[in-house]
Design a protein around this nucleic acid. Structure first.
Lengths: 238, 238
DNA sequence: AGTACCAGCCTGGTATCCCAAATTGGTATC
DNA sequence: GATACCAATTTGGGATACCAGGCTGGTACT
């Protein structure tokens, strides 16, 4: 075990008490989502063990949890970072439309919809100077927080799961300034309809938003497949 | 380690090669879903270890996976079989309505809907002589197989997950003959609408079916809370 | 009798060791 | 040069040893 890393981890742990397993899981997830480990890349338990200064037991626990999140998978014997799967992205769009629309309909029917303003403020925290990374994060969080308002744990979990699986792909997507602005406007329109209690309109706007998002995403990734492969990323065709 | 059990497990493994982890996971799930281990009951890794003749490594792997299925949870330090949660059952009904309706709409729009006949045959395999346990299983499988026809992995997974979480509660539900027959008829009606490609009608029938199922389930469990508690089952109120 | 306290036990968390299987690299043979 | 084969290494799967923290039961003191 790397003593320096162990010391660093111990120091981190003194600030934020966290089990080794949670630590490994968190850091590994960040590396995968941040594309520091490319889609399709092989993972060995021993490498992770050395990388994070934890023993195999917590490493394996973390791998099992990340497997259920769909971020890694078994490749016969051995672990592999999940490839970018264009067919899967299309299926996720259908899935998230179902759960997100259900959630927003619930929310529109609630008495207390004050949480909407917090989400609006979150959107407005992004402006022209905001780095793209932040736009990316807020774009994902918007959908998660919107689902949270419904108060339904299962819908929230489903949306969070879908956004987790989408986040790598969305990060790879070639997005222009216009796309960011359009998404921002659509998000606000969805919030407005929900705040007013117009469930049908909110649902319609949200469906359209998701469909548009899916089309841009799949098109962008499909066009850039060559570039992604050149970076060593495994891409599975639709 | 119990040598007899180990020998039995070894014998089973020779017939169906299955890792210890899968074996523990499968058997433990069956015990939980079959209420051989009651809701709310405490689990210790050492007890499971001895019970199934496996060491703690596969036991922990199985526990981690069952945790993500919602069948067990952490109780601070330690593991607990998930209690029957009436509020959760209501939320699951909303969740499954969203995903099942989405799935059936997809299926109704498919060119090839031949799989529907297989499901119909499955329903018809139950008659007056069929044991209640089989009715129970077919009732769950109907929804899973219907979702599978959609071809969307995520909708299927969501439905399977929801039915897993519901299955213990449905098993506890006080069901009369009429309820079984009514569910059978509703299932067939949903299939007929789907086969005909009438997406709206299929969605409407399915929504009504799920809502009715939820009402009967929650009412039944609520009325029998005293009885459930007497059996040592933890029941969390809505 | 009530309460504060302490020792021992039990638990999950972690590290480490062993093993069988699979991969790999080289080598000898055709 | 291609290929079949074998040994060494590496891998994940499993078993076990050890640890720190918490719970429990008993005891001693008030």
């Amino acid at each position: 075990m790397d003593l320096v890393l162990a010391a660093v981890n111990a120091a981190l742990e003194s600030v934020t008490p966290m089990s080794q397993m949670q630590n490994v899981e968190k850091q590994l997830r960040e590396m995968i989502l941040g594309l520091e480990i490319g889609p399709g890349e092989r993972l060995t338990e021993r490498w992770i063990e050395g990388r994070f200064g934890a023993s195999r037991t917590p490493v394996r626990a973390a791998l099992l949890r990340l497997e259920t999140e769909g971020l890694i998978g078994r490749d016969g014997r051995g672990w592999t970072v999940a490839p970018i799967n264009l067919a899967e992205l299309g299926q996720i769009a259908v899935y998230r439309e179902a759960v997100e629309v259900a959630a927003v309909r619930l929310t529109a029917a609630l008495e207390d919809r004050n949480g909407i303003d917090v989400i609006a403020a979150m959107l407005d925290s992004c402006d022209a100077e905001t780095p793209r990374e932040e736009w990316h994060r807020v774009g994902l969080d918007f959908h998660i927080e919107l689902a949270r308002l419904s108060g339904n744990e299962f819908l929230l979990r489903a949306v969070r799961d879908a956004m987790t699986r989408l986040s790598r792909a969305r990060w790879l997507e070639v997005r222009d300034e216009m796309a960011l602005g359009r998404a921002w406007a659509e998000h606000h329109a969805i919030l407005a309809a929900t705040r007013a209690g117009h469930a049908d309109e909110a649902a319609r706007l949200l469906s359209a938003h998701i469909a548009g998002s899916r089309d841009r995403l799949v098109t962008s990734l499909h066009d850039d497949r060559r570039g992604l492969r050149a970076r060593g990323f495994a891409v599975v065709a639709a």
